[in-house]
Write a protein that binds this DNA or RNA. Structure first.
Lengths: 114, 114
DNA sequence: TAGGAATATTCCTATTAGAGTATATTTAAG
DNA sequence: CTTAAATATACTCTAATAGGAATATTCCTA
């Protein structure tokens, strides 16, 4: 939970979120990330550092290259956190159900369709 | 998706996240929120405005009070967005994931009974 | 071992965003 | 009609932060 909250604040930055979405499709080097997002290398490195320190990413050294990829934990944490809002999410579904029932009722009174 | 990204940046602010977590347990007025979070009323109002404009909250007027509560949509969006990381989440912790799936299945059968 | 490529780091600047304070607005009560 | 309560808004200040440029570091290769 605490981890999920930290992840949220880190992912609040657009470029960092973009990095995470890039890495969803597989690991990438710093240069590749900088190129794909059209940002400069130092900025990429800085964001990657923050993402790594918050344990959203992990690095693997390959000679003078650094290969970054996603860690699963923060996303699992976020999922757990989201589950604590399940009740709210369901409330509206129920309302929608009720609404649909109302529509069906009106439909019945208007013209008996089916 | 776009909505989920916006929600992330809005929830990146600690006080706003705290407000959202407060409202998980039910609707509250501005004063109640400010008091519970030990922040000043104008700050509460500002954060609530941002949260409302990003459609995370909705307001109801009651005389000179404003009652805020969560909207389900952004959380559903976040859930959808998180699902796009399912592959990464499944890579490791297969056992835990299976367990969660079992729980989800049980949950689904509960819901569909209603 | 010199040079170049990839990345990290440092320092600076400018923008931004949140906090604080004062004030405006709305509404109920007396 | 005045006042007080609840909330929103406007203004200012300050601090955090992202970006830019230059430089340091590491590692490979000729």
């Amino acid at each position: 939970m605490n981890h999920a909250m930290n992840a949220l604040s880190v992912l609040g930055e657009p470029n960092r979120l973009a990095i995470v979405e890039l890495l969803r499709d597989g690991e990438l080097t710093v240069g590749e990330i900088a190129h794909k997002l059209e940002i400069r290398q130092p900025q990429a490195s800085k964001h990657l550092k923050i993402l790594t320190e918050s344990e959203i990413l992990e690095v693997k050294a390959d000679a003078n290259r650094r290969i970054y990829k996603l860690r699963p934990e923060p996303f699992q944490s976020l999922e757990s956190w989201l589950k604590t809002f399940q009740k709210i999410m369901e409330e509206r579904y129920d309302k929608l159900d009720d609404y649909l029932k109302v529509l069906q009722q009106k439909d019945k009174t208007k013209k008996s369709k089916k």
